[in-house]
Amino acid sequence: MATNVYFVRHAHSTYTPDERKRPLSDRGYIDAKKVTELLADHPIEVIISSPYKRAFQTVEGLANRLGKEIKIVEEFKERTLSGEPVENFEAAIEKVWKEERFAFPGGESNLEAQAKGVRAFKQVLDEYAGKNIVIGTHGNIMVLIMKFFNPGFDVTFWKKLDMPDIYCLTFDNGKLAGHKRIWQRD
């Protein structure tokens, strides 16, 4: 039996230096309602989220609509790029994707972040095999997990993501059997 995982990249947020408490922006709340509408008719059985507020808020409306609790999984939080703010975010992202073992001081390399995310993701696949699962998460960690199963998911793919975005990945016996983008911006 297939397992469907709906990766939901969080909606637009209002910047604050506190990663955990950064809330959705006004636009983000509007888009989170669209996420709820898009997924409400899917037979969702499990909802999981990063502990970060913006990811949780993006899937919260869906959980409320379906009467589901949201399970928090720490490993689905965004990867730590650096211990201190980087001077040029785009250049920093390019560097860690190009040199997957490289880590800025206080940050995680792509390989470290991917290993952490994939471990948690495989546990989800095992625990909820055959179910339809929503995971509220973040762009970089989401694509790093996806890349583990298909190398075509790379930094170029990441750059094309919307905020929010939704991809449904179908797994058969732990192997990626297909993927489809669900989100379409108006």
Rank of each mutant, 00 (worst) to 15 (best):
V155E: 15
I47Q: 00
G107N: 07
E100R: 15
F7N: 04
F171M: 09
V86T: 10
D172W: 04
T36A: 05
G178Y: 08
M163Y: 13
G83M: 07
D26Q: 13
G61F: 04
I141R: 08
K159L: 11
R22S: 11
A115D: 12
E78A: 05
R79V: 11
H12R: 14
S13P: 06
N140R: 04
H42I: 10
A103I: 10
A92S: 15
S13F: 08
F171D: 12
L125I: 12
E60H: 14
L38Y: 09
A120R: 01
D165K: 06
E94H: 11
T16N: 02
G67T: 02
K159M: 13
G28Y: 06
V118D: 02
P17G: 04
E87G: 07
Y128R: 01
K34Q: 14
L24D: 07
L38H: 00
Q57A: 13
H138G: 10
H42N: 10
G107L: 06
V134I: 09
Q184Y: 12
R101V: 08
M142G: 04
V73N: 00
L62R: 03
Q57C: 04
Q114E: 13
S82Y: 05
A55Q: 05
K21C: 01
V155I: 14
N110M: 13
D126R: 14
E19I: 12
S50A: 09
V96A: 03
K180V: 08
T36R: 15
R54E: 03
Y52E: 15
L176Y: 07
I48Y: 01
R20L: 15
M163C: 11
S49I: 02
V8H: 00
T80L: 12
I166V: 15
D154A: 11
H10P: 07
E99N: 14
G130K: 02
N173H: 14
M142H: 03
I47Y: 00
D186L: 13
K71P: 00
V86F: 08
T14A: 14
V86E: 07
S13T: 11
G61N: 09
W183P: 13
P85W: 06
K71S: 09
R101W: 05
V124R: 05
A103L: 09
E99L: 10
T16R: 11
V86D: 07
V73P: 01
M163S: 15
N173I: 02
F149Q: 08
D26V: 14
D165Q: 08
A115Y: 03
G106Q: 06
G61A: 06
R181I: 05
K77E: 10
F153D: 10
Q123I: 13
K21M: 10
T170Y: 01
P85D: 05
A120P: 10
D186M: 11
L62A: 07
W97G: 08
V118G: 01
D18I: 09
A32K: 04
G67Q: 03
F102A: 09
M1T: 13
F121H: 10
E94M: 06
W97M: 08
K159F: 10
V86W: 07
E37H: 06
M142C: 13
R27G: 13
A92E: 08
E78I: 05
T3R: 02
I72A: 00
E100V: 12
L62S: 04
G136E: 04
F7E: 05
D126N: 14
S13C: 08
E75N: 12
E108D: 10
R65Q: 14
R101N: 15
N132P: 04
V46K: 07
S13D: 03
G106E: 06
N140S: 11
L169C: 15
D154G: 12
V73T: 07
